[in-house]
Design a protein around this nucleic acid. Structure first.
Length: 489
RNA sequence: GGCGGCGUAGCCAAGUGGCAAGGCAGCGGACUGCAAAUCCGUUAUUCACCGGUUCAAAUCCGGUCGCCGCCUCCA
């Protein structure tokens, strides 16, 4: 089954055919670095990480560019608030974003271009647009894109230019040729950061950096351009207009937009005060649990964030790790696995691939992963035999492989299940120390004491010890090989 | 007003023409000293509602109701 992708421009799923066989060039709009990234950013970049990983698994050579907008009005404003230089603000939040992405296990893009490092390319593209009659400069040094000069304007987002101009929400600026014209270059006021240009000192408009940088690294026409749904208009519409007006060639083959994270079915926003940063969430939630939650729904649908949803995801992740633990504890074996089991494993694999090929349906793929966990647990319940162990080894490998495709199941299962005990920093975010549990050596000693009591049939004492541990969040599991423990998730 | 999306069990969520995946929670059973974990079974004759097309619809078409997003900086 071929890979299909929903294209926002055509509003349909289409079979994916890259421009250059075996190669995919993808650009995703990154962040404006003026504040810590929030869960909405996490959703976007985890979703595109899953897409990135699937393309790699399909053996495409992927060039993935994700930019930083490191000069912008919001950064300038934030710099004034913090009494810092604008570029220090940008540096600080680029570092913060990098740390968040690393904590979430997002694979680094191939290129992370920054607007301020591409001023010559940006100016060159603005000049092209002026030369071709698609842009005009004002006396004050602002340069605008003339939407009237580009008949296809509105085609990406399905809007009609006349309708938009009739809309009451467009501010009328008499200096512009058309109310919908947007800034390519903004003249700077005294004291603001500025770069020299043919129109005087200024800085780039928001949209131009993405068309200039994406085309520099990926070519005039490239395969996939992504971002949050809100960017469809005006950002991507404007990008497309700039790029196609400047080159006369189609800009992007597949436009991909992720849906929003919502809080109680409402948009998350600073003004509503229902705002969560990635760092906040990782204080109490482990990164893989957050990832499983973020990927549990299709990337185009809205995703409702809540404590319950995070808990459910954590419980599911525990189930997967429990299966992985059972699978990895099997003895090494070179026996042939029983065909019926082999078939189940292959079926789970096929279901996973089918889900991912169908517009990156991670929710369906996760279902397949749970199916594999069930197979694993059933197999683990069989009488020990070389064939069983061989099957379990296959399960272990497949759980790791498919889990890895979603960026989960990367830890040692035993450590994961006991993770919050004794040791801090499981999440890589120092604050996790707050969730620190009892000392593992002490737990083992309690278990030994309970074992002795059980042997003596002193079940009252055994239960007392177990209850004490349960109260501390330590769950005991008595099995044929003795008692295991794990932390309650 | 324009454009787009959503409404599937107690909760979350796949499925876009052929007997309704999966997770969480619940219930019954197996296992266990009792539990936990795990396994087995069970939990929607039904997919917001009303009509229509079809041998066959959650899936296609028309309408109704409800919710949300974009149209303004925004992942």
């Amino acid at each position: 089954m071929p890979l299909t992708i929903y294209n926002s421009r055509t509003r349909r799923k289409e079979p994916f055919t890259p421009i250059h066989p075996g190669e995919v060039r993808m650009y995703v709009c990154g962040v404006t670095v003026y504040d810590d990234a929030h869960i909405g950013h996490a959703r976007c970049y985890v979703a595109f990480d899953a897409i990135h990983r699937h393309l790699l698994a399909r053996d495409y050579r992927v060039t993935y560019a994700r930019n930083f907008t490191d000069i912008d009005d919001k950064i300038i404003r934030r710099a004034a608030e913090l009494n810092l230089a604008w570029d220090e603000v940008a540096r600080r939040y680029m570092d913060s974003f990098g740390a968040d992405m690393a904590a979430l296990g997002v694979l680094p893009p191939t290129i992370e271009p920054r607007a301020t490092e591409h001023i010559p390319e940006i100016i060159a593209q603005v000049q092209d647009l002026v030369r071709r009659g698609h842009a005009y400069a004002l006396d004050n040094g602002d340069v605008y894109f003339a939407v009237r000069s580009f008949p296809a304007y509105g085609g990406l987002s399905g809007r009609d230019l006349e309708d938009m101009m009739a809309g009451a929400r467009v501010e009328v600026d008499n200096r512009k040729q058309s109310p919908m014209d947007f800034a390519l270059w903004k003249s700077s006021k005294p004291g603001e950061p500025a770069w020299d240009s043919p129109w005087g000192p200024g800085r780039p408009g928001w949209h131009i950096e993405c068309s200039a940088m994406s085309q520099k690294y990926l070519g005039a026409t490239f395969d996939i351009h992504g971002g949050g749904k809100d960017l469809l208009f005006p950002h991507h519409e404007n990008e497309m207009a700039q790029a196609e007006a400047a080159t006369g060639q189609p800009f992007v083959r597949y436009w991909v937009h992720n849906g929003f994270v919502q809080i109680n079915s409402e948009k998350m926003s600073k003004s509503l005060g229902n705002f969560f940063t990635i760092k906040d969430i990782l204080k109490t939630t482990r990164p893989e649990g957050l990832r499983l939650f973020l990927l549990s729904k299709h990337y185009r649908s809205p995703l409702d964030f809540s404590e319950t949803a995070i808990k459910d995801a954590a419980a599911g992740l525990e189930r997967l790790y429990t299966a992985l633990l059972a699978a990895e504890q099997a003895a090494d074996s070179d026996a042939a696995p029983v065909p019926a089991w082999l078939k189940e494993i292959e079926q789970a694999n096929a279901d996973f691939e089918q889900g991912m090929d169908d517009d990156f349906n991670t929710a369906g793929a996760i279902g397949a992963l749970f199916g594999l966990a069930r197979t694993t647990n059933r197999l683990a319940g069989e009488a020990p035999s070389p064939a069983r162990d061989a099957g379990l080894k296959l399960c272990a490998g497949k759980l790791r492989e498919l889990g890895g495709r979603l960026g989960i199941l990367k830890e040692d299962p035993q450590q994961f299940l006991q993770g919050q005990a004794g040791q801090a920093g499981q999440t890589g975010q120092g604050e996790a120390a707050a969730a620190q549990g009892p000392d593992p050596a002490w737990i083992e000693a309690q278990i030994a004491a309970r074992q002795a009591a059980r042997k003596a049939k002193n079940f009252a004492e055994a239960d007392r010890i177990r209850n004490e541990l349960t109260g501390l969040g330590v769950l005991l599991e008595d099995g044929p090989q003795g008692t295991r423990w794990r932390m309650k998730g």
